[in-house]
Amino acid sequence: MKNQYNILIAGVGGQGNLVCGCVLAEAALQQGLTPTTGETFGASRRGGTVLTHLRLDADDLGPLIPREQLDLLLGLEPLESLRAAVDLATSRTTAIISMTKIETPESIAGKVKYPEITEIKRSLRAICGKVYSLDPGRIFAETGTRRALNAYMLGAMVTSGVTSLTEEHILRAIQTTLKEWDLNRVAFEAGKKDFRSLVDL
């Protein structure tokens, strides 16, 4: 059997989780791989948890990543990243996570408390092999929107060098799959830069 590389994108409905999976799958296809993605729908538009499973060179393997087989957790939201990590991550897993939280309806209403980010980070570090926490706050402020979070995270991912996907292929896939190329281009570069400064520290 080929060595599988498995990516899970975890986030909240409305964050563009599914298109992010499409970009990666498209990039993999253009690189000559045979990707498979599994998507969770339905609840996705209504603010629920959304997961996209991506297997970079799966041929006909199932769309869902089995336990202990997760290589990269691309987290668009901290709480949802932790939820996904609890189910699937191990020391094999690298996690690249945006730490900008999205409160839940109950935590907004003050009925429960959203966990402390430092606690989430600590827990992620205990579960995953490596954890990179990113703060897209600056790029959100600069561009005045959260729509480019995917491109930002992909920029970070490319710089981490954890996958075999090349910058060239990902950029091209962003261009063909996402709208708003200018915005996404800027966010992609910001993601690259922020990741580099993380590693330099």
Binding site: G47, G48, E80, L82, A85, V86, E106, S123, I127
Partner: peptide, 17 residues
Amino acid sequence: TLKLARQMLIPRRLTFC
């Protein structure tokens, strides 16, 4: 470790928009 992490997870329930 997983048990501790699970205790932190608050649900994200579906509600009306």
